[in-house]
Design a protein around this nucleic acid. Structure first.
Length: 112
DNA sequence: GGCGTGACTTATA
DNA sequence: ATATAAGCCACGC
């Protein structure tokens, strides 16, 4: 039983994160903290990154729509080509800077 | 049940 | 703006 037996999510935090990322609308981006909060806790920021790192289903999980708190793509987003990352977002209608910045005030998705 | 790791976040210099 | 430090939580062995 380990410790945190009071937490409601112990059994599928990853699953929860995947679910949230999966329902991100096209042409929008979500931040790790936002996804973490949507999944249940704003402190899962690292867990979100870890969850996407293992990324069991890159075809189902649009990791490229997940950016950091500054609307910046992660430096280790290399899954088939870090450049393809920005290209995908642009293809969705999101403007991405050469550094990987996106306009959060315009494309940041808000979880309800 | 403990240790190490990590695609984050926030704060300070 | 960048760099460094500490904190947070979950997974794997």
């Amino acid at each position: 039983m380990k410790s945190r037996t009071k937490k409601p999510s112990r059994d599928g935090v990853f699953d929860r994160i995947y679910d949230v990322v999966r329902l991100i609308p096209k042409g929008k981006v979500a931040t790790y903290g936002q996804v973490a909060a949507a999944a249940g806790n704003p402190r899962w920021s690292r867990v979100v990154g870890y969850a996407l790192h293992v990324n069991p289903d890159p075809k189902t999980i649009k990791c490229h729509r997940v950016v950091d708190r500054n609307g910046r793509l992660s430096p280790a987003f290399v899954f088939g080509g870090c450049n393809a990352q920005a290209e995908l977002l642009k293809a969705e209608g999101v403007e991405v800077s050469e550094d990987g910045h996106v306009d959060l005030k315009k494309y940041l998705w808000h979880f309800e």
